[in-house]
């Protein structure tokens, strides 16, 4: 049993690299996902993941499957969309989900079209679903750097970020930190999506944020614990997904997200905080 778990990583370097990559993605994406969820922006993350695609595709058009070109393209496109949508929702009556929903479809269609202009279907699959089993040194460094930046930035922004979710009126009455905090947070979301994009592609990168976060909500009522659980679930999904793909010869990216989906389903059923099992059989009521 232990051999089934250890030997793929001991024998194959590409498995080691994949594992390091998904652990780093989980470390950054877990807490970001929790905040996205608590700020009711789960679908915003999804829409932004799609917004990255045309940028990365333009990078691909000029430089092929180059790490730097696609990263820069993705970052630029993501930041432009995130900031524009954020400002629109802040200063007009249009809600954020409405302004992002249009980008969702537009970006996907545009991105796929641009990639098809030059590349093959294989390249398109790389862009859409990532290449977690082919992460080179530079890509790993990029992902690790993004996770580090995310952890530091969240530590600094923690207080206004929480306050902005719970009681934005109060934050506005004591500080002007609200709007910059929101914009920096959106920037972090884009960074993590670009990092995840290289491993899991535009369509699945957001899965390593939202599935662990949604699952962690079923286990605790404390936001700090929730972020830790989300990271742990992300790492567990990465590990089990890679093993699943290795032994059952499944595509690695979807296997990782499926593993995360499995953990989410178990949490939904058994989670101590509002899981279905506890709702169905809550036990006899306590004394008043």
């Amino acid at each position: 049993m232990l051999n089934l778990i250890l030997s793929p990583f001991a024998e194959f370097e590409f498995m080691q690299r994949a594992l390091v990559g998904v652990v780093a993605i989980a470390l950054g994406g877990g807490p970001i996902g929790v905040f996205l969820m608590l700020r009711r922006m789960s679908l915003t993350g999804d829409a932004m993941a799609h917004a990255i695609l045309p940028g990365a595709a333009v990078g691909y058009l000029f430089a092929g499957l180059s790490l730097s070109a696609m990263t820069i393209g993705g970052l630029v496109a993501g930041v432009v969309v995130a900031v524009a949508a954020g400002l629109v929702s802040r200063f007009t009556t249009l809600k954020e989900d409405a302004s992002l929903a249009a980008f969702y479809l537009l970006s996907l269609a545009l991105g796929v079209t641009i990639v098809s202009l030059r590349g093959s279907n294989v390249d398109l699959l790389h862009v859409l679903f990532g290449t977690v089993l082919a992460l080179d040194d530079n890509t790993l460094l990029l992902i690790a750097a993004i996770s580090t930046i995310t952890a530091l930035a969240l530590a600094l922004l923690y207080r206004p970020l929480v306050l902005e979710c719970v009681d934005p009126t109060f934050l506005r009455s004591v500080s002007r930190a609200g709007t910059p905090t929101h914009l920096i947070f959106l920037g972090l979301v884009v960074l993590n999506l670009v990092g995840g994009f290289h491993a899991l592609g535009t369509l699945l990168a957001v899965g390593m944020m939202m599935l662990p976060a949604a699952a962690s909500r079923f286990w605790t009522n404390d936001i700090t614990v929730m972020m830790v659980i989300s990271v742990v679930i992300g790492i567990a999904s990465g590990l089990s997904g890679l093993l699943l793909s290795f032994h059952a010869e499944l595509p690695a990216g979807p296997a990782i997200i499926l593993a995360a989906g499995g953990i989410y389903t178990v949490s939904l059923l058994l989670g101590r905080e509002g899981g279905l099992l506890w709702l169905a059989w809550p036990g006899k009521h306590l004394e008043a």
């Binding site: 608590l38 979710c165 719970v166 009681d167 909500r217 605790t220 009522n221 404390d222 936001i223």
Partner: peptide
């Protein structure tokens, strides 16, 4: 105006 569902003590 307070989000009561937020996991805060």
């Amino acid at each position: 105006e307070i989000d009561r569902s937020f996991p805060l003590s």
